[in-house]
């Protein structure tokens, strides 16, 4: 479903340069992977590449859902990329990324409405499974951080995407809530057979949640710049 090899992305130049190298990343449907590494090592950059919102510099191969993503970027096919995002991707942001002007129900339903899908009860079902049923009528500002993350998870899953990306979904939560949110997210993704890529600095939680762990290694080069490389599973 997702096949990357020899994908490069660089920002800045000289000693300010930061490069991310993905030698290989292959994901099958339902596979769940954690990307771990210290803050600033490039986890978010990797997720943005996978989320089709950041263009790669060099590509050996970048396929998602049998589409040549590198080709779409080269041809600047923004609307095709946007359609792929809306149909096949769910994204859980570190800070929730909820829209303040919509209530919880509206936020969760948004990914379905964008695809023109009727409400088949999945919004209420997800809210129930993520224990936010009694918050559906509230605005995000009235929710706790943990509740917002659950809403964000529900929105990422509501349209049954093939791939769920989560960027430090538990970073702003206390350990107990972190475990509950992570557990709920993975359980729902498993139920929907959605592949998961979760960026986190909490490796013990990732391992405890049964995720396959891929580490990003950082190395300072002779020119003073930094190169981060996605390691093999281990």
């Amino acid at each position: 479903m997702l096949n990357l090899s020899a994908v490069h992305k660089s920002r800045g130049a000289g000693s300010q340069r930061y490069s991310l190298v993905i030698p290989a990343l292959h994901l099958r449907a339902g596979e769940q992977v954690a990307i771990v590494g210290p803050s600033g090592c490039g986890k978010s950059t990797l997720l943005d590449l996978l989320a089709l919102v950041l263009a790669p510099d060099q590509v050996g191969r970048f396929e998602f859902n049998q589409q040549d993503i590198a080709g779409l970027w080269r041809a600047d096919q923004q609307s095709t990329l946007a359609r792929l995002r809306s149909q096949h991707l769910g994204y859980v942001l570190q800070t929730g990324g909820l829209l303040g002007f919509l209530d919880v129900r509206g936020n969760i339903a948004l990914s379905r409405q964008l695809l023109g899908l009727k409400d088949d009860g999945s919004v209420a079902r997800l809210a129930d499974q993520l224990e936010i049923s009694d918050q559906l009528g509230k605005k995000p500002s009235a929710l706790s951080v943990g509740q917002r993350q659950r809403v964000s998870c529900a929105r990422a899953l509501a349209h049954a995407p093939q791939l769920v990306l989560a960027d430090e979904p538990t970073a702003s939560l206390d350990p107990l809530n972190a475990e509950r949110v992570m557990h709920a997210l993975l359980a729902q993704a498993r139920e929907h057979r959605a592949a998961c890529v979760i960026a986190t600095h909490d490796e013990p939680l990732a391992r405890a949640s049964g995720l396959q762990v891929r580490r990003i290694h950082c190395r300072r080069d002779s020119d003073g710049g930094v190169t981060a490389t996605l390691g093999e599973a281990g």
Partner: peptide, 14 residues
């Protein structure tokens, strides 16, 4: 800006 980026991330076109 933040809301608009989120909408773009969700797949809304320009």
């Amino acid at each position: 800006r933040r809301e608009l980026s989120v909408l773009r991330l969700l797949g809304f076109s320009t």
